[in-house]
C-alpha cells in the first residue's frame, strides 16, 4: 500500500506520526480490557437495538432523567438514567409484561448486577460507574435478549 487516498484528515496524520514515533504505546490495561470483551458475549441471544426516544417536553436540563429504549422482536427494554454524585442509577421497564421468573443482568465491562423483574416489569440498579452498559433479559423458555452496548456518562 503505497498510495495515499486524496483526503487524510489531521487526526489521521497525527495518529500515524505518533504511532510511528512509538512514544504513546497502548497501555496494558487497554489491551487487557479488549481481550476481556470477548467474555461478554451472550451466545444465542437476540439483539435489542436502540430506538430514538422523544425527550419529554421541557427536558433540557442535565439533571433530568434520560430515557433509552431498546427493542428486539418481541421485547422492549427501557432505561431511565439518573446520575447521582457521578454514579449512574438505572430504572428499567421490560415490556410487554414479562412472565414470572424473568431476570435481567445490568452489565458493565467490569461488573454484572442481576435483578428479578417485578410483576409490573420493573427493575432498578444504583450507584454504577459511568461507562459502557448493556442489559441482558432472560425469560423462561426464551432466548436471552441483550441490548447493544451504550455509553452512559453523567
Amino acid at each position: 500500500m503505497t498510495r495515499h487516498p486524496p483526503a487524510i484528515d489531521d487526526e489521521s496524520l497525527v495518529a500515524a506520526l505518533r504511532l510511528a514515533a512509538g512514544r504513546d504505546p497502548v497501555p496494558a490495561h487497554v489491551s487487557a480490557a479488549a481481550r476481556a470483551v470477548f467474555g461478554l458475549r451472550v451466545p444465542g441471544a437476540s439483539a435489542a437495538l436502540p430506538v430514538a426516544t422523544a425527550a419529554p417536553l421541557g427536558v433540557r436540563s442535565a439533571d433530568e432523567a434520560r430515557l433509552l429504549r431498546f427493542t428486539a422482536a418481541e421485547l422492549t427494554v427501557e432505561l431511565e438514567i439518573t446520575s447521582v454524585d457521578g454514579l449512574v442509577d438505572l430504572a428499567g421497564q421490560v415490556s410487554p409484561l414479562p412472565e414470572t421468573g424473568t431476570t435481567v443482568e445490568v452489565r458493565t465491562p467490569h461488573l454484572t448486577q442481576s435483578r428479578e423483574v417485578s410483576a409490573t416489569g420493573q427493575f432498578a440498579v444504583t450507584g454504577l460507574p459511568p461507562g459502557w452498559f448493556s442489559v441482558v433479559c432472560r425469560r423462561p423458555e426464551h432466548c436471552p435478549v441483550v441490548t447493544s452496548w451504550t455509553r452512559i456518562r453523567p
Binding site: R60, L67, L68, R151, I152
Partner: peptide, 8 residues
C-alpha cells in the same frame, strides 16, 4: 437530549 441515543 440523550447522548447514547444520539450516538447510535
Amino acid at each position: 437530549g440523550d447522548p447514547a441515543i444520539t450516538e447510535h
